[in-house]
Design a binder for these strands. Structure first.
Length: 436
RNA sequence: GCCUCGGUAGCUCAGUAGGUAGAGCCCCUGCCUGUUAAGCAGGUGGUCGGAAGUUCGAGUCUUCCCCGGGGCGCCA
């Protein structure tokens, strides 16, 4: 059979009642009531009920179909029918069956409550669930929207190595790799050092690539491998890069809210909020943030980073994502530029999502002066000789430049109000799980 | 790394005072022409996470180990 249609298009009413169509997919659920069978067919676009009436097909076909276990893949032809009794309001009245790929009868994922451990052990099957399918489709739209924005704003996509010899974010969270006979090779934590080299070649650039962090973190917002959307641009200061972040995040939110509101709603998000999210986002100095936290009675001292205890109360009242600007030098990596008027703080900013979803962007202005960078490296306890090529960049045509990294899964989690970051990605990697 | 909860049928769980293993779902068989996690009747299915110990006897008590969930610190 050829010329198959998508279940989603039938459910959207794109076919008139009575239209003869062909569908193919996997049996998601099946129920039978003697002379009539109900199959919910899952085809990658959605799930649609297909009814088989004994009157409409020959007896052999009817009896065969009744025996098919769930997850059997098959081709169905029939007639589109509007029916309020069907989930979604539309169904296919089947009058013929094409090729069939019969499943084994013991599919482990049951339409009942199941434990997380079991579902994670069977992740390769659980990803078929419409709930996850929907999130993955939103994720794809998210990336599409971002790339579209980058293109419209003159950014070039570029990719940097995953194998690296130097730490970007601090050595304790590096994954060590066996790299032939070489020692000291690690998986990338960030593209940043390479990005700073590439801006002198390409100008405004971005990447969408995995980053790896060996943080022994067991929380609902950590992955050891996450998708990192990073951006770097020359001739730009801290203020400029925050404005860029505002526009990028707003654009992605708007696209999701306006173009696929139903999917967003089904996942648990609020499409109206996303559609209306507009720049600029509020900016709060680190000093004021500390004071705010202290006023709420939570223990914190100037110079500390925000832990969960501090961040929750701080972001609870936020309507929009909010920038925390000017972190102390002591809690930011060496490449952050010190504030010329106030050496104890950096020209850095993190974007915190509302409602305790945590940090979704981290970035700022980089040190572009050679001497200053050299000193910062030493102050940070690092060996400058490990960063020779990176220092080199400051010798020839160094200009003020800034960038940031956005955690795709974190942003998705916030936008869809998900309980756990694991559901933003098909096969999540955390400290306890690398299988399947 | 630390805190905390858990591991009994394929899945979700119950298991009283230590006395020899249960339910629902899944699956199989039969019935049912509008089901929505369908319903009704019957049936299959177990090294109680592992090892050692106490005991006449351990799913249950003790010790050690393994695996997992949630959280903290840290981070995007």
């Amino acid at each position: 059979m050829t010329g198959f249609v998508d279940a989603a298009d039938i459910l959207k009413g794109r076919y008139e009642e009575g239209a003869a169509v062909k569908l193919r997919g996997w049996i998601y659920t099946s129920r039978s009531s003697g002379g009539i069978q109900f199959l919910e067919l899952r085809d990658g676009s959605g799930v649609i009920q297909c009814t088989l009436n004994k009157r409409d097909v020959d007896e052999d076909t009817f009896n065969e179909v009744e025996k098919y276990p769930i997850e059997t893949a098959l081709e169905l032809k029939g007639v589109v029918k509007r029916d309020e009794r069907a989930p979604g309001g539309w169904e296919l009245r089947v009058n013929g069956v094409g090729d069939v790929y019969v499943a084994k009868p013991d599919y482990p994922i049951v339409k009942k409550e199941q434990g997380i451990e079991f579902l994670m052990d069977n992740r390769h099957l659980y990803i078929r669930e419409p709930k996850l399918q929907n999130i993955f489709q939103i994720r794809a739209k998210f990336l599409e929207a971002a790339r579209c924005w980058f293109k419209d704003n003159g950014y070039t996509e570029v990719h940097t190595p995953m194998f690296m010899t130097a730490s970007v974010e601090g050595g304790s969270t590096l994954f060590s790799v066996e790299y032939f006979d070489k020692k000291g090779v690690y998986l990338s934590q960030s593209w940043q050092l390479y990005a700073e080299a590439l801006i002198s070649s390409l100008g405004k650039i971005y990447t969408i690539a995995p980053s790896f962090r060996a943080e022994p973190s067991r929380t609902r917002r950590h992955l050891s491998e996450f998708l990192h959307m990073e951006l770097e641009e020359p001739w730009t200061d801290l203020d400029g890069i925050m404005t860029t972040g505002d526009r990028l995040v707003s654009h992605i939110a708007n696209v999701l809210g306006e173009e696929i509101p139903e999917k967003v709603r089904n996942a648990g998000g609020d499409p109206d909020y996303l559609a209306k999210l507009k720049p600029p986002f509020p900016r709060m100095s680190y000093d004021d943030a500390v004071e705010t936290v202290q006023k709420q009675g939570v223990e914190m001292y100037w110079g500390d980073d925000f832990g969960w205890q501090q961040e929750g109360p701080l972001t609870e009242q936020f309507e929009k994502p909010t920038w925390i600007v000017g972190y102390p030098s002591g809690i930011k990596p060496f490449y952050h530029m010190p504030n010329p008027d106030r050496a104890e703080v950096t020209m850095s900013a993190d974007l915190l999502a509302p409602a305790g979803y945590g940090e979704i962007i981290g970035g700022g202005q980089r040190v572009h002066d050679y001497e200053q960078l050299y000193q910062r490296t030493i102050d940070d306890g690092l060996d400058p000789s490990n960063y020779e090529w990176y220092m080199d960049l400051r010798k020839w045509g160094t200009v003020p430049h800034s960038g940031f990294g956005l955690g795709v899964e974190r942003v998705l989690m916030w936008m869809l109000k998900l309980e756990h970051i694991r559901d933003t990605v098909p096969f999540p990697r955390d400290m306890r799980r690398v299988y399947p």
